[in-house]
Deep mutational scan, measured.
Amino acid sequence: NQASVVANQLIPISTALTLVMMRSEVVTPVGIPAEDIPRLVSMTVNRAVPLGTTLMPDMVKGYA
């Protein structure tokens, strides 16, 4: 089972991601792979991401 990136807090729309905002967790459905966390830092989300939500590729500008 692959770990995915999960929001560690509410991430408001257009917020630049930082390490403290994300954690890795094995979830269903599978989202962005946890090993991509370093790549996600400073990318922005294009929607509000509630606490505990799995980050999907279409939620992060420039990721997909």
Rank of each mutant, 00 (worst) to 15 (best):
L17W: 03
T54C: 05
S42T: 11
S24I: 07
P33N: 08
P12S: 09
L55F: 09
R39T: 15
M56I: 08
T53S: 13
A16F: 09
D36N: 09
I11D: 00
N46Q: 11
T15N: 04
V27N: 03
P50E: 10
M21L: 05
A3P: 09
D36I: 07
I11Q: 00
M59I: 05
L55S: 02
A7Y: 03
D36A: 08
P12Y: 05
P38L: 12
E35L: 14
T15P: 00
L17I: 10
M22G: 00
V5T: 06
L10F: 15
V26P: 08
T44H: 11
Q2P: 11
L55A: 01
S24P: 12
L19C: 06
A7K: 01
T53L: 09
N8Y: 04
Q2K: 14
M59F: 14
M56C: 06
T15V: 09
V49I: 15
S24M: 12
M43G: 03
K61S: 14
A3Y: 11
T15C: 06
T54I: 11
S14P: 03
M59D: 15
T53K: 08
V30N: 15
P29K: 05
T28M: 08
G31Q: 02
P29M: 04
V6T: 06
I32Q: 01
E25I: 07
V41M: 06
A34H: 07
V60E: 01
G31E: 02
V6Y: 02
T18A: 10
L19A: 11
P33G: 05
T28I: 11
V27R: 13
T18H: 05
V5S: 01
T28K: 14
Y63T: 03
T15D: 02
G62K: 06
Y63V: 04
V45Y: 01
L40G: 00
D36T: 09
S42Q: 10
N1P: 14
Q2W: 11
P33K: 13
V26T: 10
V26M: 13
V5A: 09
N1L: 15
V20F: 13
V60A: 02
V60Y: 01
V30D: 07
P50K: 09
N46I: 10
D36F: 13
A7T: 07
D36M: 14
T15L: 05
V30Y: 13
Q9R: 10
R47D: 07
L10R: 11
D36W: 10
P38D: 10
K61F: 11
D58C: 07
M22H: 01
P57G: 14
G62T: 06
Y63R: 03
V6C: 04
S14R: 13
A16Y: 09
G52C: 04
I37S: 04
V60G: 02
V6P: 01
T18V: 06
I32A: 01
V60S: 01
L55T: 01
M21A: 05
S4A: 02
V41E: 06
I37R: 06
L17M: 07
V41K: 04
T44L: 11
R23S: 08
A34S: 11
G62W: 06
